[in-house]
Design a protein around this nucleic acid. Structure first.
Lengths: 351, 351
DNA sequence: CTGAAAGCGCTAACAC
DNA sequence: GTGTTAGCGCTTTCAG
């Protein structure tokens, strides 16, 4: 694969060739061999204490830092793991969900002594560059998030032959590889069941649902399935599809109220949509939860706690999902390669 | 620097040693020397067209991907640039500002054929790991953002001896190195002047300001200075300090109204604070802009356009700042090493 | 235009 | 415990 420079010929090089001290310099200066220095660096036990001390001193004195490239070349390890986010529209950064997830990932990776490096897929040509980066051996593995179904990522890692795990169950498309991708996901269906059952338990009878894009996203389809598990006979006019956004939730709620002014509850498949629904209900003078009870999904505290009234919603342990992702990457050996993280209902005032 | 593994001994290795094809394999298979293959890979001109073709074919056939570690070892280049975000509290991901900035950075880096990799400083021990990562030669340079004054980043890069530029003017603290750090920043002072002048031009006389943490953040101090440039005689009770957040803005507005119920305008040093101020003004029954005009700073469209009324605010070309950061990294040779990106006022309904 | 040879800086057997 | 010796896979003079 050719990798010529882009628009500019400017190139960024570090210290002009050979200025940095090498392991050899450290060895000479401390009167030992390279191997011994290497052992000290890598914390191997069988080195005399005084020697260790002296070598450490020299290292500090010289400001020696091991050259990772040289090390990688022989160990085949980098100590870095890529987290790839496919987010052409920049939605991701607005998502506290991702923030939390990432923190979970970083924590777990840190336990393995690995550094998380985040890459973005934004413009079309980013894909090639990221593929080169991943395939080129800059990282030991990758954790991939594809916000889009049939995302560009799923096929890529197979070809690159790099350890990879997916956040959210990858939706396999027609022509896609059949190879199973290891993934971690929340219990979307179970969570939706909990939410809807809660509404039923509260005595609600005409329970509507605002769904995510269930024809495209696995999570959305599962959440709808959970709703149907509890309410197999729900009439179709109580179901309105939206897109996981606040505005979409508002639109859907408007449509539902229009169609079924008698509804007494709504399960929104995301907190953002639930917030949009609350906005509309308020505008229409419906009291929540007295007239209409509302349950969301995700438990994004920043949203769920600041709505009026605060939102009852399905809690996902997002940080735990992040941790599991990192763990799965290191445990690929053992099957099964899918982890479903349980959900639980956080009851606030809206239902 | 010793780098033993963390809690677990699990290690992530790529293909078991030597399974991937090397440049040697490609050379043999296409009946040329390693050098020629290398030339083809690097797009050097002086190779016979047929040879190029054949080598490319073999590369594809074998699924050969150059080993970056080996390449780095000799070229001293990685093709990657780190973007380091110091964000102990997770605020960053909620910040559309950063999203935009990052996009600008990525674009410009892409022009130079470089991949942006994002690193986070979250927990205390992240600092050491990130330092190792940067110093270890995984990247050719670093773009650093420190949300906190006297941040942990400023000293680090000097010691690491790696090309680095800062987003936002680094605030040098007492014991810190005196070495000037190249940086890119918006024209905070000029922008504030524009904002306040606009209020003056609109005939406002008692113009209050909600400032950022000006004892800690350079930008906040500059925005306050801009306010004072225009209103050197403003009484101190028209100035209220907050923390750049919406809640802080609301609190500050409450205090100001309490102290100076006669105020007829307010310049908030961030859109978030302006939004908070608008909330409070509405609660207090003040009409905006009729009774009180409000100007913000940042022009985060998601916020500025969705407030009621939409916010007049100082626009920063954030993507441009990102681009300049990347550019500065490649241009470090030429002084000066500070870039100030101009601002302009976006007039909406609030003032 | 192409090949041969010499490393880049490090780790990992294997001897001592 | 410590040193010696091979490479890891690539680029890059330097010849031809």
């Amino acid at each position: 694969m050719p990798d010529q420079l882009g628009g500019s010929e400017t190139v960024l090089t570090r210290r002009p060739h050979g200025q940095r001290p090498t392991i050899e310099d450290v060895a000479r200066r401390s009167g030992v061999s390279r191997s011994t220095v290497s052992r000290v660096i890598n914390g191997e036990p069988k080195v005399r204490a005084e020697v260790v001390e002296e070598v450490r001193r020299v290292i500090a004195e010289l400001g020696y830092v091991p050259n990772q490239a040289a090390r990688q070349l022989v160990t085949h390890r980098t100590g870095a793991v890529a987290v790839v986010a496919d987010q052409p529209d920049g939605r991701l950064f607005l998502d506290p969900f991702f923030d939390c997830l990432l923190r979970g990932i970083r924590r777990e990776l840190a336990r393995h002594g690995a550094q998380a490096v985040l890459l973005f897929l934004d413009e079309p040509d980013d894909l090639a560059r990221v593929a080169d980066y991943l395939g080129g051996g800059h990282v030991d593995g990758a954790i991939l998030f594809s916000l889009h179904p049939g995302g560009r990522l799923h096929g890529m890692t197979d070809r690159l032959d790099i350890p990879a795990v997916f956040g959210g169950r990858p939706l396999l498309h027609d022509g896609d590889t059949v190879r199973a991708h290891p993934y971690v996901d929340g219990d979307n269906r179970g969570g939706a069941r909990q939410a809807v059952q809660h509404l039923v338990d509260r005595g609600r009878r005409r329970i509507a649902t605002v769904t995510g894009p269930h024809d495209q996203e696995h999570s959305a389809a599962e959440r709808l399935a959970g709703y149907r598990d509890v309410l197999p006979d729900a009439p179709p006019d109580l179901v309105e599809r939206a897109d996981y956004t606040r505005q979409g939730g508002a639109r859907a709620m408007t449509a539902l109220l229009d169609r079924r002014p008698d509804l007494d509850a709504v399960f929104a498949a995301s907190d953002l949509m639930a917030a949009g629904a609350l906005d509309v209900l308020r505008e229409h003078g419906r009291r929540v939860p007295d007239d209409v009870a509302v349950v969301g999904f995700d438990d994004l505290t920043e949203i769920a706690e600041s709505t009026d009234p605060p939102l009852t919603t399905v809690h996902q342990d997002v940080a735990e999902m992040g941790r599991q992702l990192a763990r799965l990457l290191f445990d690929r050996a053992k099957e099964p390669t899918a982890v479903v993280v349980p959900t639980q209902l956080t009851v606030r005032a809206s239902a």
